[in-house]
Design a binder for these strands. Structure first.
Length: 293
DNA sequence: CGTGCCCCCTGTCAGC
DNA sequence: TGCTGACAGGGGGCAC
């Protein structure tokens, strides 16, 4: 999917146009994107106003205020975009027909619309009351870009797992928001082989991984995310971080650091990309401090 | 609990 | 020109 930087970019793009708007109606065209009947979903959002647009992990979170005849609850529309989900803003004067594979159409009070489109339909949308949202959020790991996410925490958590470090990074219960692209990119920059057991990383490697993971995510946000196929911003444009990728999808191409050849391996059923020279599989016995590139 | 495997679904691309 | 299989930013369920 969209990973953290893509969800963040979408949330930022939706904030200004959605804030303060009221949802007039919700049309559900693909009910399998919901975990409740579409009538219930529609009723839970109709005539409610948008109080905020944010993100948790890879999910876009839209806060909706109380409707006219409701209590004071601020509920949250949580959008998991799966692999191919898009949240697109449609301007008021845009009469264009709905794009193919449109799953939901949210009509707003200024004549604009929000469209959820998802070719593969791996995405899910749910409206969560405060306590349900809290429970759901507690099931996710910490936000890697939060101030409180320190190297010490990462090193400690890594030391308790035998998982390959790439698989570890993909587990949303451990860290929220990292997917296959940024896991591979961070490991490449930290010069860590993706298949190494998490607990075998040295403290130095843990510190390096902490630093480069955050910088990769921040740089990707600055670039508006990575568009490979499906991902688009809320305005429908592409993210430009694909140009900055060093290993992901670059099998057979030269490593930008050592001019070795990037390879693709299979790990936990998913592709991992690495430079075998810069990211040796064995334990690192080299005690020299190496700066990430 | 951790881990690996399969599946959900559609589209695209390489190879025959 | 087709057909087939592999693969794709994710994640839930299940067996071990």
């Amino acid at each position: 999917m969209p990973e953290l930087p893509e969800a963040e970019t979408i949330a930022r793009g939706l904030r200004a146009p959605l804030l303060g708007r009221s949802i007039e109606d919700v049309e559900v065209l693909k009910e399998d994107l919901l975990s409740v009947p579409k009538a219930e979903f529609r009723a839970s959002l109709r005539h409610r106003s948008v109080h905020g647009v944010g993100r948790r992990g890879k999910n876009v979170v839209v806060e909706v205020g109380p409707g006219s005849a409701r209590g004071g609850d601020v509920d949250r529309l949580v959008v998991n975009l799966g692999m191919s989900g898009r949240l697109l803003r449609r301007r008021p004067a845009e009469p264009a027909p709905l794009p193919g594979h449109t799953g939901l159409h949210f009509r707003l009070d200024d004549g604009s619309a929000l469209i959820y489109r998802d070719v593969r339909r791996f995405g899910r949308l749910a409206v969560l009351p405060p306590d349900a949202y809290r429970d759901w959020s507690r099931g996710l790991g910490p936000e890697p870009l939060a101030d409180g996410f320190c190297a010490r925490h990462l090193i400690g958590a890594l030391s308790r797992s035998r998982s390959p470090v790439r698989s570890w990074l993909l587990d949303q219960r451990r860290i929220a928001g990292v997917g296959n692209i940024y896991a591979n990119e961070a490991l490449a920059r930290a010069r860590i082989h993706p298949g190494r057991p998490a607990r075998d990383l040295s403290p130095d490697e843990g510190r390096t991984l902490h630093r480069v993971l955050r910088s990769v995510l921040r740089e990707a946000i600055d670039a508006g995310g990575t568009t490979l196929r499906d991902y688009r911003t809320a305005e429908g444009s592409e993210g430009s971080y694909a140009d900055a990728l060093r290993v992901y999808g670059r099998e057979g191409h030269p490593c930008t650091r050592c001019a070795g050849t990037i390879v693709r391996i299979r790990l936990g059923g998913r592709s991992a990309f690495l430079c075998p020279r810069c990211q040796p599989a064995g334990q690192q016995h080299d005690s020299r401090r190496t700066r990430p590139t």
